[in-house]
Lab assay of single mutants.
Amino acid sequence: SEIVVAMYDFQATEAHDLRLERGQEYIILEKNDLHWWRARDKYGSEGYIPSNYVTGKK
């Protein structure tokens, strides 16, 4: 599975969105859409994140 790191904070506005915290790692579950990826955080929460807010883990 692909691990990404959040470059920016993202506040979830929709129920299906996942909040991003800058510097935290997330697991990508689905990339069915170019701009919104389904991800899981370290607490096990899942939701959609803006793909341009994250970068591949170095």
Rank of each mutant, 00 (worst) to 15 (best):
residue 1 S to E: 14
residue 1 S to Y: 15
residue 1 S to C: 15
residue 1 S to V: 15
residue 1 S to K: 13
residue 2 E to V: 11
residue 2 E to I: 13
residue 2 E to Q: 11
residue 2 E to W: 15
residue 2 E to R: 09
residue 3 I to S: 06
residue 3 I to D: 02
residue 3 I to C: 09
residue 3 I to G: 03
residue 4 V to R: 04
residue 4 V to G: 03
residue 4 V to P: 00
residue 4 V to L: 05
residue 5 V to T: 09
residue 5 V to I: 14
residue 5 V to G: 01
residue 6 A to T: 02
residue 6 A to K: 01
residue 6 A to V: 03
residue 6 A to Y: 03
residue 7 M to G: 02
residue 7 M to N: 07
residue 7 M to H: 05
residue 7 M to S: 05
residue 8 Y to T: 06
residue 8 Y to G: 04
residue 9 D to F: 05
residue 9 D to V: 04
residue 9 D to E: 06
residue 9 D to I: 04
residue 9 D to R: 03
residue 10 F to T: 03
residue 10 F to P: 00
residue 10 F to D: 00
residue 10 F to I: 05
residue 10 F to A: 03
residue 11 Q to P: 14
residue 11 Q to K: 11
residue 12 A to S: 12
residue 12 A to W: 04
residue 12 A to F: 04
residue 13 T to R: 13
residue 13 T to K: 13
residue 13 T to D: 08
residue 13 T to L: 12
residue 14 E to S: 15
residue 14 E to D: 14
residue 14 E to Q: 13
residue 14 E to F: 12
residue 15 A to I: 12
residue 15 A to H: 11
residue 15 A to N: 10
residue 15 A to M: 12
residue 15 A to K: 12
residue 15 A to D: 12
residue 16 H to D: 12
residue 16 H to Q: 12
residue 16 H to L: 08
residue 16 H to I: 08
residue 16 H to F: 11
residue 17 D to V: 15
residue 17 D to T: 15
residue 18 L to G: 02
residue 18 L to C: 06
residue 18 L to M: 06
residue 19 R to F: 08
residue 19 R to K: 12
residue 19 R to C: 14
residue 19 R to V: 09
residue 19 R to Q: 12
residue 19 R to H: 11
residue 20 L to F: 03
residue 20 L to W: 02
residue 20 L to V: 04
residue 20 L to N: 02
residue 20 L to A: 00
residue 20 L to Q: 01
residue 20 L to G: 01
residue 20 L to S: 02
residue 21 E to R: 08
residue 21 E to V: 14
residue 21 E to N: 07
residue 21 E to L: 08
residue 21 E to K: 09
residue 22 R to C: 11
residue 22 R to D: 03
residue 22 R to Q: 11
residue 22 R to L: 08
residue 23 G to H: 06
residue 23 G to W: 06
residue 23 G to I: 02
residue 24 Q to C: 12
residue 24 Q to N: 08
residue 24 Q to M: 10
residue 24 Q to H: 10
residue 24 Q to W: 06
residue 25 E to T: 11
residue 25 E to S: 10
residue 26 Y to F: 03
residue 26 Y to I: 02
residue 26 Y to W: 01
residue 27 I to P: 01
residue 27 I to N: 04
residue 27 I to F: 10
residue 27 I to V: 12
residue 28 I to M: 02
residue 28 I to Q: 00
residue 28 I to S: 01
residue 29 L to M: 06
residue 29 L to S: 02
residue 29 L to F: 04
residue 29 L to I: 12
residue 30 E to N: 10
residue 30 E to H: 07
residue 30 E to M: 09
residue 31 K to V: 05
residue 31 K to Y: 05
residue 31 K to C: 10
residue 31 K to I: 05
residue 32 N to Y: 11
residue 32 N to S: 14
residue 32 N to D: 11
residue 33 D to Y: 09
residue 33 D to A: 08
residue 33 D to N: 13
residue 34 L to M: 12
residue 34 L to N: 13
residue 34 L to K: 14
residue 34 L to C: 15
residue 35 H to L: 13
residue 35 H to R: 10
residue 36 W to Y: 08
residue 36 W to H: 05
residue 36 W to C: 10
residue 36 W to E: 03
residue 36 W to I: 07
residue 36 W to P: 00
residue 36 W to Q: 06
residue 37 W to P: 00
residue 37 W to K: 00
residue 37 W to V: 01
residue 37 W to D: 00
residue 38 R to L: 15
residue 38 R to N: 03
residue 38 R to F: 15
residue 38 R to I: 10
residue 38 R to D: 00
residue 39 A to D: 02
residue 39 A to S: 03
residue 39 A to Q: 01
residue 39 A to P: 00
residue 40 R to D: 01
residue 40 R to L: 08
residue 40 R to S: 05
residue 40 R to T: 04
residue 41 D to C: 04
residue 41 D to P: 00
residue 41 D to W: 04
residue 41 D to Q: 01
residue 41 D to H: 02
residue 42 K to M: 12
residue 42 K to E: 06
residue 42 K to T: 07
residue 42 K to N: 05
residue 42 K to P: 07
residue 43 Y to N: 11
residue 43 Y to A: 09
residue 44 G to T: 02
residue 44 G to P: 01
residue 44 G to L: 04
residue 44 G to K: 03
residue 45 S to M: 14
residue 45 S to W: 08
residue 46 E to H: 04
residue 46 E to K: 03
residue 46 E to S: 05
residue 46 E to A: 04
residue 46 E to Y: 05
residue 46 E to Q: 06
residue 47 G to F: 05
residue 47 G to L: 02
residue 47 G to H: 02
residue 47 G to N: 01
residue 47 G to W: 03
residue 48 Y to Q: 07
residue 48 Y to W: 13
residue 48 Y to H: 05
residue 49 I to R: 00
residue 50 P to M: 05
residue 50 P to S: 04
residue 51 S to Y: 07
residue 51 S to Q: 06
residue 51 S to P: 07
residue 51 S to A: 13
residue 52 N to P: 06
residue 52 N to M: 11
residue 53 Y to I: 06
residue 53 Y to E: 01
residue 53 Y to V: 05
residue 53 Y to C: 12
residue 54 V to K: 01
residue 54 V to L: 05
residue 54 V to T: 05
residue 55 T to C: 14
residue 56 G to H: 15
residue 56 G to M: 13
residue 56 G to K: 13
residue 56 G to P: 15
residue 57 K to E: 09
residue 57 K to S: 11
residue 57 K to R: 11
residue 58 K to R: 12
residue 58 K to A: 13
residue 58 K to L: 14
residue 58 K to D: 14
